[in-house]
Design a protein around this nucleic acid. Sequence first.
DNA 1: GCAAAAGTGTTACGAATACACCCATGA
DNA 2: TCATGGGTGTATTCGTAACACTTTTGC
Lengths: 238, 238
Amino acid sequence: MKIPKQYENIDRFPVALDAIIFGFDRENLKLLLIKRDFEPKKGEWSLMGGFLKSDESLDEAASRILANLTGLKNIYLEQLYGFGEIDRDPVERTISIAYYSLINIHDHNKELVKQFSARWFPIDVLPDLIFDHLKMVEAAKARLRYKAARQPVGFELLPEKFTLPELQQLYESIYETDLDKRNFRRRILSMGVLVKTNEKQKGFSKKGAYLYRFDKNKFDMLNSPSNGAGLSFKPPNI
Amino acid sequence: MKIPKQYENIDRFPVALDAIIFGFDRENLKLLLIKRDFEPKKGEWSLMGGFLKSDESLDEAASRILANLTGLKNIYLEQLYGFGEIDRDPVERTISIAYYSLINIHDHNKELVKQFSARWFPIDVLPDLIFDHLKMVEAAKARLRYKAARQPVGFELLPEKFTLPELQQLYESIYETDLDKRNFRRRILSMGVLVKTNEKQKGFSKKGAYLYRFDKNKFDMLNSPSNGAGLSFKPPNI
DNA sequence: GCAAAAGTGTTACGAATACACCCATGA
DNA sequence: TCATGGGTGTATTCGTAACACTTTTGC
């Protein structure tokens, strides 16, 4: 096919993907950051990133980049925003599409993480970040809050079985607020997507809390028949 | 500065911006589409678009492209999503950042619109669109619903003075639903960002409806002192 | 005078909030 | 036995939804 003139003399740019990787360690919401090992800004903290290749879509590229650091595939990953200020990257004019992902913090490749000199940071005590990465993180926090209020994404951050106090702690971290135990349990259980197991968590508290499991089938059932915005997990009032 | 090796051998891509342009003609929510005048897909309907240049940010480029078609500057414009499927553009691998904008439908350059063979289409009777532009439109509709439920963006689509029945009609178009007149008026007025004028609209109804004006100062006041998500215009229950 | 749209209040319901005590267990 | 965290129910408040008649005026 002849190339139309509208495609001649146009600028072409490197397209970066940067990943905001959330994890939860049963206490704090955390971000996985890497220590950059090349100039510029060598040695400073950064989001994991990489450049788009021509044989992959944006989603595939983001997924590849996430796997490069964590070894994980099929992870919750959502596009966040495109950042394109002219001078955002001092080396070359670059645009970056930020993605955020939710992973189980215990469930990733420690070896890779070591190679990248990566570390988990509590979301409210982050180091300085290069370029516009802090803006990306802020956008991701806002999006996670929006998302978690509407869909039960919290489960992506937890192990398969978890207790209600753990789940509540997660939501409290996401919204940086305290929630009433009784109201929280009522709301969550009334959604009907949690299944109580007969097992109790041992070791943490004396009494032990029941373990629950997220029932993806029930969720899909409730969610699929064009339920408008899907089942709603109401946002806690901040 | 020496170029780090991480920036060598990377692919570079044309970055397109596509604009979903909403308008409202006191009856229907509409989209401004252009008839493409070059191959491929010459003669088919398309969103207004263009390519990023190296001396402008993404926002600036989107703004320029919007002005190319409408002649308007300083318009409500918000980034929507980055589209990057490999084969989305048959000519060349291109990524596109979609923006949506809200304009007053009577307030644009008719000459330019004619040059582009552009036309306003009711949002629910769109022609076939090229590439992935329909996906972009769907995303924009969803975003507008989200946005309008939280911030009074509706005013961007109306003339300076408008009646409450007109405003209600706009919201009904956005949400494709009927709203109760009394509840709507109460909700809108309780936000305290509308100022009633002494003028009545003539010509449309026999009785005539009072004209209101959006009070941007009050809005900024209510919105600025870190009011969480800002003043909330609750979403109509769909 | 009548058709057509504008304008106006009240009640009922459901959701969210606030709130305090008992239970199970390990140390 | 006591300290620690887990588990439970109810009353109140507030916001949302449902609903029907009067007013104005051009024709």
